[in-house]
Amino acid sequence: MDSADAMLVSGLRRYHERIVAQFARSLRQERNPLVADPVALRQCREHARSILVELETCLDPAPQPVSATDGIPAQIGETRASSLQSPGISFAAAATLFSTIMRTVGEICTDPEQAIAVAVTLNRIVNQRVGAALMSYSRYLLDNVHRAHVQERFRIGRELHDRLGNDVGAALQLSRLAAFYLPDSQERTDALLQDVSTSLSRAVGEIRTMTFQLRSLVGGRPLKDVLTECTDQLALTVPVDIRLQGDECWIPDYVGEELFLVIREAVRNAGRHSAAARIQITVVVTPTEAVASVVDDGVGFDTSLPPTAERTGLSSMQERVRLFGGSLEVTSEPDAGTRVRVRVPLPGERR
C-alpha cells in the first residue's frame, strides 16, 4: 500500500464517528422514515460503521477481509420486511451514506483518480449489501406467505375431519349394520339404509359448501353481495347484518380477495365458537384505506391467554393482512363479545 492509500485509510479511520454522525443528520434532514424508528436508526449507524471497515479493508488488504456476510444486511432486510417498510427507504439511506462517505474522501484525498477508485469500491460494497438485504427482505415475506398457506391447509384438514368425518363414519357403520340385518329383517335394513342415505346426503352437502367457500372470491363482484352469499353458504344459526360504506372501486381486486378471506374467517369463527345472538359486518372504504370489522355479542375470550385450537385462524388472518401493509386488531373479553378490526391501505386509484 503506497503512502496515499495509507493516508486515506488513516483519515477514514480517524473520521469514523464523524461520518456516522453526519450520516444520521443527513437522514433527518431528508426526512427519511428510518429516523423515526430507534431500532432502524441504530441499525443504520451499525451498518455505516461496518461498510467503513470493509472499505478500509479493501484499500488496505493486509487485515482479514470483512464482507456483507457479517449479518447486518440480513438483519436489516428482515427488520424492514417485518415492519412493512418499503425497500425504497433503504435505497435512499444507502445513497445518503455513499454521498456522506465520499464527501469525507474528497476532504482527505487530493488525487482524482484515487477518489474515483474509492467511489467504485464503495459502490460495489454498498450494492452487495443492498442485494443481501433485499434477499433477506424477500425471504421473510415468502416465509410469511408459506406459513399462511400451511395454516390454510391445516384449516381445510380440520374442516374435512370435523364436517365430513362424522357423517361419512356414521354412514359406514350403518351400512355394516344393514349388511348384518339384511338376511333377517328387511324393515330394519331399509331403515338403516335410509339413515345411510341421509348421512351421505349431509356429507355431499358439506362438500358442496366447502367447495363453494374455497372458490367463492370477489372476482369483481360487489363485496356486499359476495359476503351475503358467503354467510348464506356458511349456514349460520345467527343473523348477520352487513353494512358497507364508501365506493368499492377504490379497492384493487387483489386486495378485495384477501379482505374477503379475512372477513369470512372472522365470521366463521364467530358463528362457530362465540355462541352469539348476532353478528355485524361493517366495511368502510375511502380512497386511502379499507376498514372492516366483524363484531359479535357472544361469549368472548381472554386475549392474554395462548391461542386455542378454535383461535388458530387468527394468525393466518394476521399474515394475510400484513402482506398488504395492513393491521388486524382483536378485542375481546369473557362474556363481552369479540371484535375483529382490519385496516388495509389502498393506493388511491380507481379500478
Score class of each variant (00 low, 15 high):
residue 159 E to H: 00
residue 167 D to I: 10
residue 240 V to W: 08
residue 197 S to K: 12
residue 247 D to P: 02
residue 188 R to D: 09
residue 166 N to D: 00
residue 232 D to Q: 11
residue 168 V to D: 04
residue 176 R to Q: 11
residue 179 A to V: 09
residue 232 D to K: 07
residue 190 D to V: 04
residue 171 A to Y: 08
residue 236 L to T: 03
residue 204 V to S: 14
residue 155 R to V: 09
residue 207 I to Y: 08
residue 240 V to F: 04
residue 165 G to W: 11
residue 216 S to G: 09
residue 213 Q to W: 13
residue 209 T to A: 14
residue 200 L to Q: 15
residue 212 F to L: 15
residue 217 L to I: 14
residue 234 L to W: 06
residue 188 R to I: 08
residue 178 A to R: 06
residue 167 D to A: 14
residue 185 S to T: 08
residue 238 V to P: 01
residue 193 L to A: 05
residue 164 L to N: 10
residue 182 L to C: 08
residue 224 K to A: 15
residue 223 L to D: 00
residue 202 R to G: 04
residue 179 A to E: 10
residue 225 D to W: 00
residue 231 T to I: 15
residue 188 R to L: 07
residue 239 P to T: 01
residue 185 S to F: 09
residue 212 F to V: 13
residue 169 G to E: 04
residue 233 Q to V: 02
residue 190 D to N: 15
residue 219 G to I: 03
residue 167 D to H: 14
residue 221 R to M: 06
residue 195 D to M: 06
residue 239 P to V: 05
residue 242 I to T: 07
residue 227 L to Y: 03
residue 182 L to R: 10
residue 214 L to D: 01
residue 226 V to F: 11
residue 208 R to H: 13
residue 183 P to W: 08
residue 243 R to F: 14
residue 205 G to P: 07
residue 158 R to P: 03
residue 185 S to C: 11
residue 182 L to A: 10
residue 231 T to K: 09
residue 200 L to H: 13
residue 235 A to Q: 15
residue 224 K to H: 05
residue 196 V to Q: 04
residue 230 C to I: 13
residue 201 S to T: 14
residue 160 L to E: 01
